[in-house]
Design a protein around this nucleic acid. Structure first.
Lengths: 227, 227
DNA sequence: CTTGACACAGAACAGACGTTCGGTTATCAT
DNA sequence: ATGATAACCGAACGTCTGTTCTGTGTCAAG
């Protein structure tokens, strides 16, 4: 038998609440009573109805009776203005950076590979329609304070101002890297983000391909470090 | 008779599109075919179906057939599910970590200081209602690959599993730090994220206050580096 | 004039859906 | 023991809903 919770929400109340949110996020419409039942292990629609009534009385959901899928989480709408930034591929020291076709907007992709970023995290003037993201592979960017698995959000550019972090391809070393960019008298200085590490100097006569400016770095820590 | 538009969208196509958006915004679930018909002046459900098919072929909407109210506007979803994570203050080596009152949800604050994070960036099971954010001050966390100005998102915890990055207060050194946490035989190992740096060892007899687990690090690169 | 594509209406159907009701079991205070 | 109550289940009912089919009028091309 199910354990009676004297007060507060029972396990099933919470599972229903979670499922409502999850389903709505994935399908953009609410689930039917039967769908709620299946996913929360409730075999009878009347029991689901029973719980929905309770949740409504506590003000946690709102229902439009007699309307199919007329359930919604109440409370302030958590949806905010976000940007879907397409994930174009990996970035690693030895790998060339993915080529960007000019003028192409990548918003047409399916949902397969993209990073959602709240607009409030970006500079106000940033329109964001050309941004793309790369996933860092390997430890080659640790001097840029960027780790294996990090996501870098890049704005395409072929030039940069002093002090901006850029994604560059160095034909000299056959290497892609992320560095702070400085133009000096007759050379470029590529400064690692880690202040204890030394810069790379490139003569202006040598080739240097700036691919874009790094506008954001995101590190998800979902998986524990295996050491 | 209705004016035939040779190409592009007819008036009814547009009215349906607008109604879809309006209805979804007001009710948080999509309209039924009959409801679309009433509001757009179409008397037959088959005609509404006829238009929806066309809109789907042009990629303007998506339909889940045989599912009631299974219509949604396609295209870049600008309003995604986000979380407002309150920014509780700075974190620096010398500063004590802000105290968290147990059981208090910080979602009640005004908009003054919070970070918006798309739910899709967090682990699926993460409810997120207890998360908080801290802004890193100073260079003391560079061994954790975390720079001045970075934002760390933390889930409150007093214990951790091996390999998780934790925010800890070390009474021994009077210092706050971010390290990967490992429990060993008779000591704790606090491992810097930067693999070239050496761990700190704390005997289990010594005090060690785990304040939370780091779930995310965000680095905004809006300002150029001044060097 | 015929043909065919297009825009539309109406009706009918089957299945999805919310609601309701009778019944069962376990827990707890009386 | 007894009754009240909360937590369930299964079935039945009626309606909501998407789908499909037949038919009608318009218009342009052949």
């Amino acid at each position: 038998m199910m354990v009676r919770k004297s007060k507060g929400l029972g396990e099933r109340h919470q599972r229903i609440l979670e499922f409502l949110q999850e389903y709505q996020r994935e399908n953009r419409y609410p689930p039917s009573i039967r769908e709620i039942g299946v996913k929360t292990g409730i075999s009878s629609t009347s029991v689901v109805n029973y719980y929905l009534d309770q949740l409504e009385k506590r003000g946690l959901i709102e229902r439009d009776r007699r309307i199919s899928r007329g359930v919604r989480l109440s409370g302030p709408n958590t949806a905010a203005d976000t940007l879907r930034v397409p994930m174009l591929g990996p970035i690693a020291a030895g790998l060339p950076l993915p080529e960007l076709e000019a003028g192409v907007t990548y918003m047409t992709d399916n949902e397969s590979n993209a990073v959602e970023i709240a607009r409030s995290l970006l500079p106000a003037k940033e329109k964001g329609d050309t941004l793309f993201a790369l996933e860092v592979k390997g430890d080659s960017m640790i001097d840029a304070m960027i780790n294996d698995g990090d996501i870098v959000v890049i704005k395409p550019a072929t030039d940069a101002r002093n002090g901006e972090m850029v994604a560059v391809w160095l034909p000299r070393d056959n290497e892609a890297t992320l560095k702070y960019f400085f133009k000096e008298k007759d050379r470029y200085r590529l400064q690692p983000a880690n202040p204890t590490m030394k810069p790379i100097f490139i003569k202006k006569t040598e080739p240097l391909e700036i691919k874009g400016k790094v506008v954001m770095v995101i590190r998800k820590m979902d998986k524990p470090l295996a050491v």
